[in-house]
């Protein structure tokens, strides 16, 4: 057993030496693998970040009820009281058309231009916040339905809608990233397979001799498997560096943007489990690609 491990260790370092002896071509292969893996890894991190950023918006569901034009303040107040008694509602805020106009003037910057309007086109609005524990889509849909039943309500708008859409889009993107990851994983497999195939053909004589002096297939396979594994691993390492560098470049602008929105959001890099998963999948793909190539070509090489 000790001998067995020792032999593996020997082959490991021998293979490492072989890679180091041809630094340029080794690096080329690893760089191709790195770029191939960086693409899905980078997209994954991006989506992960967007998800983190949108988490904070989930709880603050808000329903706006736009009242029909011409609804008097008394009618609006009566409605407000009625809504307040609905079970999932925590608070209702009445915004009169005048207040809405004031706010719009302040925020839009049109200021005086709006004074030119003959009458206020804005409707009165009731802004409703559902209570805690009622912000799941079903309760909200129910609330929206009952709000729509009130005669004075012109338009009921659930502000959560766009968050939901964003989440659906993200889920779609996530699925896309997985699809891309599978395809690019296949590309890595082929890249390694081809590199190993060339290595095998280059060492045809050596393989024949080893077969003649009693080397088993497992013995002949071993250095090629290690070579594939190491190239995959180093390729994944390059991918890691590429992704982290890319995120580092994004950190500054994103922070400025987040500050504008008064959000504490910052770009998150690859965390340890994800980094390890990236390295492991690189190594695994390398080993697998090598295994496929070796299995196919070793059979063809027989001493003659």
């Amino acid at each position: 057993m000790k001998n067995y491990l020792l032999r593996h260790l020997q082959v490991f370092f021998y293979t490492l030496g072989q890679l180091a002896r041809t630094p340029f071509s080794s690096f080329m292969t690893m760089a191709v693998i790195g770029i191939t893996l960086a693409l899905p890894a980078g997209l994954y991190v991006l989506i992960d970040n967007i998800q983190t950023a949108s988490v904070g918006w989930d709880g603050k569901a808000q329903i706006s009820v736009f009242l029909k034009p011409g609804t008097t303040q008394q009618q609006a107040r009566a409605l407000e009281t009625k809504i307040r008694h609905l079970r999932p509602v925590e608070s209702v805020q009445y915004i009169s058309p005048e207040a809405a106009m004031e706010e719009f003037k302040r925020l839009s910057g049109f200021g005086g231009a709006l004074d030119a309007l003959e009458h206020n086109p804005l409707p009165a609005v009731l802004v409703i916040r559902p209570g805690d524990g009622h912000s799941d889509p079903e309760s909200l849909q129910g609330l929206v339905a009952s709000l729509r039943g009130f005669g004075d309500a012109d338009l009921v708008q659930l502000d959560l809608e766009w968050v939901k859409r964003l989440h659906l889009l993200l889920r779609l993107a996530e699925r896309g990233v997985w699809l891309l990851a599978v395809l690019l994983g296949l590309a890595v497999l082929l890249t390694i397979g081809n590199t190993i195939r060339l290595a095998i053909l280059n060492r045809r004589d050596e393989i024949e001799i080893i077969k003649l002096i009693g080397g088993t297939n497992a013995f002949i396979r071993r250095p090629f498997l290690y070579s594939g594994l190491l190239q995959g691993l180093f390729g994944a390492g390059i991918a890691w560096v590429l992704v982290q560098t890319g995120l580092l470049l994004l950190t500054g602008p994103v922070r400025e943007l987040a500050t504008l929105y008064a959000s504490p959001f910052g770009v998150q890099g690859l965390d340890t489990p994800t980094s390890l998963a990236l390295l492991a999948s690189g190594a695994l793909l390398g080993w697998l690609g090598s295994r496929l190539a070796v299995g196919r070509h070793l059979r063809e090489i027989e001493p003659s």
Partner: peptide, 21 residues
């Protein structure tokens, strides 16, 4: 087939072109 490597370990073979690495 899988026994062939072990079988060959008991045979020393000298080639005309020596086939060294």
């Amino acid at each position: 087939r899988w026994r062939i490597p072990y079988f060959r370990r008991d045979i020393g073979f000298v080639f005309q072109d020596h086939r060294l690495l």
